[in-house]
Design a protein around this nucleic acid. Structure first.
Lengths: 100, 100
DNA sequence: CACTTATATAAGCCTCTGATTATCTACGTC
DNA sequence: GACGTAGATAATCAGAGGCTTATATAAGTG
């Protein structure tokens, strides 16, 4: 599954956003993302298989952590578009500066 | 439809990629993206409704052009993750520099 | 005005995926 | 070793979305 598809799902973005602050067990992620426990596990599994999170067992809990490297692909795809919107924003700015 | 979902679809990324070079009519987009004509029209409609492309009639043709502004949302979402992978890449670099 | 080209829309099918409910496993505690 | 907690998995269901085929509109061309 491509990072694009992974990130398309709001539930998964919510989980990832909750992980930005640091590793968390499933229970906390479930609460933070407002997902049921099984659903949380399912999406975490998808994230894990896509290489976007890692797991380390901690007694009966599992600590999930972000592995953001695969998002670089997304970032690289954005590059040409970024330049486009920059130039259009620049144009707008110039337009405003002219006071016309 | 969120930009995340829009961009999740390979066919739509192909269309957008073809538009980076500049506006194009449907026929060229269809060829460039390797999509059937109706399918091309369908995805272009989705892109249009999401505000990612604009259309200007040109006789019996329709010229589609990129409107990349809405991708800014995607870019902003990436910011915290970008910092994470930067720091991990930096760590790797330091590690290699140490020659250990 | 018939014909062709360019594009849009409609209908239908099929697959994929997300959510829920219920169950199973593993670990810790008393 | 019974019980409670944390998490994973299975089964099922429902809905969304993609692709194709067929048809419609609209604008040029003879």
């Amino acid at each position: 599954m491509s990072p694009f598809e992974i990130v398309a799902e709001p539930a998964r973005r919510a989980l990832m956003d909750a992980l930005v602050a640091g590793p968390k067990p499933v229970g906390e992620l479930s609460d933070a993302a407002g997902l049921s426990q099984p659903n949380t596990s399912r999406h975490l599994r998808i994230l894990r298989e896509a290489g976007l999170v890692s797991v380390t067992p901690d007694a009966q809990r599992r600590l999930y952590a972000l592995r953001p490297e695969r998002l670089i692909e997304l970032d690289r795809w954005l590059i040409p578009y970024r330049e486009l919107w920059r130039s259009s924003l620049d144009a707008l700015e110039r337009h405003l500066d002219e006071g016309s």
